[in-house]
């Protein structure tokens, strides 16, 4: 976390020195800040790995968002419905409420799944899936995608 803060500070410093606060200046600053922290890695600090995981996560999320919408377009526009929707239960490995909230919200925005409700003891998340024919495969896809990445990012 400290490392991410450093990157942000370096980016802000870059924009301040340049004298104009625009999005592109900030983006350049972020890239330069990341490169700087690459070279001055303090021992025992793994924030660089965290930063890479974060960037990977954002990229993964954007990719999933695009896939979600392409699939949605196909489902909506195909003359006969090819989907087999259903409600499936997904057992959760995530523990904290914050992580589960992030997970549920991201699921809603990604291909074919929509978070409906969570059990009172926070152990099972119920989702509506456009392709629920194979429940085990759906569960596996959901868990190995976002849940694994959220755990890597937040633990």
């Amino acid at each position: 976390m400290i490392g991410l803060l450093w990157i942000l500070l370096l980016a802000l410093a870059w924009t301040a020195v340049n004298g104009e606060f625009t999005g592109s200046q900030l983006a350049v600053g972020l890239v330069l800040g990341t490169l700087m922290t690459l070279f001055v890695r303090a021992p025992g600090n793994d924030y660089l790995r965290k930063a890479l995981v974060l960037f990977g996560f954002i990229g993964f999320f954007l990719w999933e968002l695009v896939v979600a919408n392409l699939r949605m377009a196909r489902d909506v526009l195909s003359p006969r419905p090819r989907f087999a929707p259903g409600v499936i239960a997904v057992p959760l490995d995530l523990k904290s409420e914050g992580q589960i909230t992030a997970f549920a919200n991201l699921l809603t925005l990604t291909p074919g799944t929509l978070s409906l409700d969570i059990s009172r003891d926070l152990k099972v998340l119920y989702i509506h899936d456009m392709y629920a024919a194979d429940a085990e495969a759906s569960r596996e896809a959901v868990k190995s995608g976002f849940e694994r990445r959220i755990r890597r990012l937040l633990e």
Partner: peptide
């Protein structure tokens, strides 16, 4: 729809959802 794993898990009295 091919399955509904939610129906059997609600307490329809209190609206509490079990696992």
């Amino acid at each position: 729809s091919v399955r509904d794993e939610l129906r059997d898990r609600y307490d329809w009295e209190t609206h509490i959802l079990a696992s």
